[in-house]
């Protein structure tokens, strides 16, 4: 039985690397005695595959992993058992069964939403948002594999949303991940600075979620 779990990584665990998070989950699965499936061979490991990498330093509200079970079990029970043993800050939110042939998270997820907590006058930040949406091209120095090359972020930015939040504003940006255009959160930080957001005005950054975008519509990985 193959399942997909949605989990959150709180601010206190924001410095975990992807490998650290994977180990945390594997060890929680063992402590909770979940009937996971193991790979064959001399070096068996849990059939667990983590979704797109949550960058070190960011916390995340809706992250995902896939897991194969050797024996079926009620999924609410699986969630509760894991939540009993996970460290504070990590929490399984939902678990759903998925088709054995469903594409992997790494293949399916092609959109992410990043949240930026910004302390600026409303007028300034809302102008910046409009400016971003109005622009035909938004070149930023690439932080990914092709370092030192300019990358046009514009066509990878799908949507912006600005909401007041405790004397600040929460700016959400939906961007493309993976293929064809991968936009990193640190490139968005560079963009915001370029547009006139001082770095000390950005109080927090998190990933709100990961999505599967089909024909301009966003689906949760739990739906697909």
């Amino acid at each position: 039985m193959r399942i997909r779990a949605e989990y959150s990584i709180g601010p206190e665990l924001r410095f975990l690397s992807n490998l650290d998070t994977m180990h945390m989950m594997e060890r929680a699965l063992r402590r909770a005695k979940i009937p996971f499936a193991l790979t064959e061979g001399f070096n068996p490991h849990i059939r667990l595959s983590m979704g797109t990498v949550l960058p070190v330093g960011l916390w995340g509200k809706k992250e995902y992993f896939d897991l194969e079970l050797a024996q079926a079990m009620p999924l609410d029970e699986l969630r509760d058992k894991l939540n009993q043993v996970l460290p504070a800050g990590a929490r399984i939110e939902q678990v759903r069964p998925i088709d054995d042939n469903a594409p992997s998270l790494m293949k399916a997820v092609n959109c992410a939403a990043y949240g930026f907590l910004i302390r600026m006058p409303e007028e300034d930040i809302s102008n910046i948002c409009q400016n971003i949406l109005k622009s035909d091209s938004l070149p930023v120095r690439s932080r990914g594999k092709k370092k030192g090359v300019d990358k046009d972020l514009r066509r990878g930015i799908y949507k912006l949303d600005l909401q007041p939040s405790d004397e600040c504003f929460c700016l959400m940006i939906w961007v493309g991940t993976g293929e064809p255009l991968n936009i990193r959160y640190d490139e968005l930080l560079d963009l915001l600075q370029q547009q006139g957001v001082p770095s000390e005005a950005i109080l927090d950054v998190f990933r709100e979620g990961n999505y599967i975008r089909v024909n301009e519509r966003l689906y949760s990985p739990l739906e697909g």
Binding site: P11, R14, F15, D20, R27, V56, G57, P87, A88
Partner: peptide, 21 residues
Amino acid sequence: LFREILPRVSKPIRYTGNELN
């Protein structure tokens, strides 16, 4: 630490504590 210091260092998880157990 969490806001200003750790985001600037390599392997910040070395300095956060709060591990299981």
